[in-house]
C-alpha cells in the first residue's frame, strides 16, 4: 500500500475528527460518501460490516475509522486512521480544557452546551439513517432496529452484547430456514 493512500486516509478523516460533534455517529454519512462512493475503497456491505464489528468489540464507536483504515491499507492504514480520528479532536479538548476548568460555571459554557448539543443530536440521526439504509434489505433488519431501540428505552440495563447476538441470530435463522 503506497504513501498516497495513507495520506488520503488522513486527509479524509482528520477534518471529520474536528467536525464530529455528538460523537462517532456524526461521521458515518460523510465517511460512507468518501470511502464507498468516491474512493471505492470498500463496498457498502463492508462498510456496514465494519460498523457492526466496531460496535460488537470494546472501544469507542470511532474505532470504526481504525477498521476502515485497516481494511484499506492494513496495519499502517489502521494506525494512520486512528491518529486522524483521535488526534485533532483531542488537541481541541486539551486546549479548551485548560480554559474550561478555570472558568467553570460561566455563561459561555452554558451557551456552548445549549448550542452544540442539538447539533450533535441532529448529526447522530444522520448517522442512524445512513446506516439504516445500508442495512435495510428486507423487513427483518428494520424490525430489529425498531425493537432493539424500544427494548433499550424500556430496559436500559440489558447488556448491548445480548442485543447484538440476538440480532445476528435472528437474521441467521431467517437465512437458514428461508
Amino acid at each position: 500500500m503506497n504513501a498516497d493512500t495513507l495520506i488520503r486516509i488522513f486527509t479524509i478523516i482528520a477534518p471529520l475528527s474536528l467536525a464530529s460533534f455528538g460523537g462517532a455517529s456524526s461521521i458515518y454519512a460523510p465517511m460512507q460518501h468518501e470511502v464507498v462512493d468516491i474512493e471505492h475503497w470498500i463496498t457498502a456491505r463492508e462498510f456496514l460490516d465494519l460498523f457492526a464489528i466496531s460496535r460488537a468489540m470494546p472501544g469507542p464507536g470511532s474505532l470504526f475509522c481504525t477498521l476502515v483504515g485497516w481494511q484499506v491499507a492494513g496495519l499502517a492504514g489502521a494506525v494512520v486512521a486512528s491518529i486522524a480520528i483521535y488526534l485533532p479532536s483531542s488537541i481541541v479538548v486539551y486546549g479548551v480544557g485548560h480554559v474550561w476548568s478555570r472558568h467553570r460555571g460561566k455563561r459561555w459554557h452554558n451557551a456552548l452546551e445549549r448550542g452544540l448539543n442539538p447539533l450533535g443530536a441532529g448529526l447522530l440521526f444522520s448517522g442512524v439513517v445512513t446506516l439504516a439504509k445500508l442495512a435495510s434489505d428486507g423487513f427483518l433488519p428494520i424490525a430489529i432496529i425498531a425493537v432493539v431501540c424500544a427494548l433499550n428505552v424500556w430496559k436500559p440495563k440489558i447488556h448491548p452484547v445480548i442485543f447484538l447476538i440476538s440480532g445476528g441470530g435472528l437474521c441467521y435463522a431467517a437465512y437458514a430456514f428461508a
Binding site: A56, D137, L140, P141, G167
Partner: peptide, 10 residues
C-alpha cells in the same frame, strides 16, 4: 446485517 441492525437500534 442482523448484528448491524441491532447496533443501529441502540
Amino acid at each position: 446485517v442482523g448484528v448491524a441492525a441491532a447496533a443501529i437500534g441502540m
